[in-house]
Design a protein around this nucleic acid. Structure first.
Lengths: 173, 173
DNA sequence: GACGAATACTCGCATATGCCACTATTTTCA
DNA sequence: TGAAAATAGTGGCATATGCGAGTATTCGTC
């Protein structure tokens, strides 16, 4: 806790050591550690990306679409580890701004496919140098080998295999 | 991309290899890797925590408050790497539900301090076993040594020092 | 061929997050 | 001592995310 000034001053009833001792594992939460680091990196990358008008999250969507061709929403949500209705929500401003279009799948009337528009592609191309700058700064501070190792860990955690193992499901289906 | 069926079929104009080749670094984005892993872990932990009625993000807030005594909102936002107005928003449902209270700082009329209520403490205590279960599952799948190493990396990335180094600011102030 | 199960999405509701303008207060400086 | 700068928070607006109910469609089984 930065700049401790507080807190035994008539409010918290217990001394600091007793409170800290009551929650010994508080600093060990993997979910909390991931969220904090993600907020930090999102804030830093977004400040570098700001001139191109895309947030990191939006750029990530566009890149996945660009690489996949015309993925279905289901494919895209699985690839991004996003709830499908969350993906639907996240695509709306991009569709409104003309960066993507949603078209019905030819074979399956339930499905929609996501298409990057020429404007979306131009916007994505315009973001490349800024993204590369953010990425270079990260790797300069953190180390390129360490950054690659981190991404390997994160990819493993994000994988469907990890989710199945965590939930104790039989993975041999 | 799971289950590739798509996408050269009259929609995407370019062959797969050309598109993938156009964005060679797409899979290397540190921000994207962090967000994907964080979504996965949040989803998994939240499903374990669901019975206690707290989400992982709310539990994280309560734990920080519990450990700190009665931190100011500024202290809490810095500790959690959260924008201060975001923290304000995130505290509202917790205040509404009676888990925390906000009280004016005695010395600084601008500041408010966050207090865990007895109900909040009870809720937090009730979440302990579920959290420990989620945490044990993560470490069983990922490995305890690997999990500790990951948290160390994430803590470094979340640190103010990392942010200063990334932004190229002089850290010797 | 019909029906039930499964799938793909949308919508509504809610939380999570961040930026900016604003107000109130404190701190710093001349 | 007063004014300007800095700080602490709020409110509004927006994006980011997830759950559950609902509709439409497809698939599998009998």
């Amino acid at each position: 806790m930065v700049g401790r000034k507080n807190s035994s001053a008539g409010l918290g009833c217990e001394p600091d050591a007793a409170r800290a001792g009551a929650y010994p594992n508080a600093g060990r939460c993997n979910g909390t550690a991931l969220r904090k680091a993600t907020r930090r990196v999102s804030q830093l990358y977004d400040s570098v990306l700001a001139p191109c008008g895309l947030k990191g999250t939006q750029r990530s969507l566009l890149i996945h679409i660009a690489r996949a061709g015309t993925p279905t929403m289901g494919e895209l949500s699985a690839a991004l580890v996003l709830d499908r209705s969350a993906l639907g929500h996240n695509l709306k401003p991009l569709e409104r701004d003309g960066l993507v279009a949603l078209v019905p799948d030819e074979q399956d009337k339930r499905s929609r496919r996501v298409v990057l528009t020429p404007l979306g592609k131009a916007k994505l191309d315009a973001s490349m140098a800024l993204w590369a700058q953010a990425q270079a700064r990260f790797e300069a501070v953190f180390g390129p080998a360490e950054a690659a190792a981190l991404r390997a860990s994160l990819e493993r955690i994000a994988s469907p295999e990890f989710a199945e193992a965590f939930s104790g499901r039989d993975t041999s289906k």
